[in-house]
Amino acid sequence: MRIALDAMGGDFAPEAIVKGAVIAAQEVDPDTTILLIGKEDVVKGLLQEYGYTGNSITVINASQVIEMGEHPTKALTQKPDSSIAVGYGLLKMQKADAFCSAGNTGAMLVGAMFSVKAVEGILRPSIAGFVPKLSGGFGVILDVGANADCKPEVLEQFGELGSIYAKYMLDIENPKVGLMNLGEEEGKGTMLTQAAYQRLKANPSINFIGNIEGRDLFNDKADVIVCDGYTGNIILKLAESLYDILNDKGIHDPFFDKFNYEAEGGSPILGINGNALIAHGVSSPRAVCNMVLQAQKMASSKISERFQKKFSA
């Protein structure tokens, strides 16, 4: 298995990314190779500085870097040899089984849409986030930022995407799907959520349990939480801020520790022809390592192929 990793993306790149790759090289399966993409002399110099002498990391040269503040589409067009463009090129040519980056989020999304492209039948690929459950484990929430405005049929597909992900990545056999709303009753919500409710309710391929409220986020009412990207991003950032506040006050608890972005390392883009993950720009080496491990599991679980089988049919 080959996991491509953007060495130049992120606020603390390339140092934090290369350190993360070195940690991940000790934790991935023996048959997994990490393809570290970036300026070859810089990356190799850091590997030498960190004392890496193994054979689980291969350096792939990319002479250009897309900076965090650059316009995504322009940057990808003007920088074809950037680490993000090269990473997606490897994924498209099936020379990598997954691609991970803590770089420019917009460029990662644009690259996904114009390089490996959406799975046939998918209206809008989604970024998924993870929700810790009080009873243990995680649920999945989507979308968390890729699609601020959605149509009812898009939210319905999020329920399908999330169900597949929850089953094969979170090991939940028959995941319960809930629609985030301002009340539990069927008639509650905006025109969007009311219409989406009816579509989700009529879909035989998902286990739809109805509307859920914000207070249900961390209980077992739903394993898959469906919402538009505007709502999901607010929920995600609020949850992350809770961890930061508690950490600053010296309050530590195993449940709230799961709110730390490092726990999963990255957010997968679901519904594209390949496995791609986006990490926080401030990702630490541990977060990078966990993103690589998640990418390895996505590839071995054949998540992308399962989406293709479901929606192409």
Rank of each mutant, 00 (worst) to 15 (best):
S101Y: 02
D171G: 06
L36S: 03
G111C: 10
L236V: 04
N174R: 12
I23G: 01
A25Y: 09
D31A: 10
E262N: 07
T73S: 14
P175E: 01
V42S: 08
V140Q: 02
D81L: 09
S300I: 06
G159I: 05
V86L: 05
L236A: 04
T77N: 10
V43P: 08
A13Q: 10
N247H: 14
I84G: 04
I3F: 10
A75Y: 06
G137S: 08
I60D: 12
G111K: 09
F255Q: 11
Q26P: 00
V18D: 00
F307P: 02
A295L: 06
D220R: 05
I164Y: 09
H280S: 13
K176G: 07
E156H: 12
L90K: 06
R306Y: 00
D171I: 00
D29A: 12
C100L: 14
A279V: 00
G139S: 14
L155C: 06
A25V: 13
V22P: 02
G121H: 13
K74Y: 10
S101H: 01
Q26S: 14
V43F: 04
G281N: 10
T58M: 12
F158Q: 05
L142E: 05
E156N: 15
M1R: 11
N233T: 12
S126K: 07
N219A: 07
S241P: 04
I127C: 11
R2L: 06
L270G: 08
K310Q: 10
A166M: 06
K309P: 00
S304H: 09
D41N: 14
G183Y: 11
I303C: 04
K151Y: 04
L109S: 12
R124L: 09
P72C: 12
A202E: 15
Y52A: 03
Y50L: 08
Q198M: 08
V177K: 11
L293C: 02
D143F: 07
G69H: 13
D143L: 03
G45F: 11
G45R: 08
T231W: 02
Q198I: 02
A7S: 13
S126A: 15
F218A: 09
Q198E: 15
H280W: 07
F208S: 11
A4G: 13
N290P: 07
F130K: 03
A146Y: 06
R215P: 09
G250I: 08
S267G: 02
F255D: 07
G87E: 13
D31S: 14
V42M: 03
I37R: 11
E262Q: 15
I164D: 07
K117T: 15
D41R: 13
H71A: 15
G10L: 01
Y230W: 08
A279C: 14
A98V: 03
E184M: 00
K201V: 03
K167Q: 15
G178K: 04
V140G: 01
P30D: 12
V140L: 06
N275V: 06
V22G: 00
S304D: 10
A287S: 15
Y230C: 01
M108R: 08
K176P: 05
K19V: 01
A102G: 08
A295G: 06
E184C: 00
N207P: 09
L36T: 02
I269R: 02
D31R: 12
G38H: 05
G106K: 07
N174M: 09
D244A: 14
R215W: 07
S300E: 14
